[in-house]
């Protein structure tokens, strides 16, 4: 799944549906973020929700090509300690 633009309050519901619908039936889930410019807490909540789903079934959430602005939010919220980067 490729994340693009901004994930913020005004479009978080739309992104939530897309990201959850993209969870594979088995295996790890990769979120490609090279074109994601920023993410606010509404997007972080989606990441946490998806992480929990995958963790329950023994799979990983893998985040790739994160920009410094997105990484800062993942670091500040402690999410970067738990997800896998590639």
């Amino acid at each position: 799944m490729e994340l693009t633009g901004r994930i913020e309050t005004s479009n978080a519901e739309e992104w939530k549906e897309k990201i959850i619908a993209g969870i594979p039936e088995s295996g790890d889930y990769v979120l490609e973020c090279s074109r994601l410019s920023y993410i606010s807490s509404s997007g972080i909540r989606i990441i946490i929700k998806v992480y929990k789903e995958l963790k329950k079934r023994g799979n990983k959430l893998i985040i790739t090509n994160v920009s410094p602005a997105v990484m800062e939010v993942l670091d500040l919220t402690g999410v970067s300690e738990f997800v896998t980067f590639n």
């Binding site: 606010s40 909540r45 992480y51 329950k56 939010v73 919220t77 402690g78 300690e81 997800v83």
Partner: peptide, 23 residues
């Protein structure tokens, strides 16, 4: 926000103002 708490034990909410304070 206690960022050391594993994600699976996190409650929803409380992150927004925390992010603002940190940034």
């Amino acid at each position: 926000l206690d960022t050391s708490v594993p994600l699976e034990e996190r409650e929803e909410g409380g992150m927004g103002v925390f992010i603002v304070k940190k940034m």
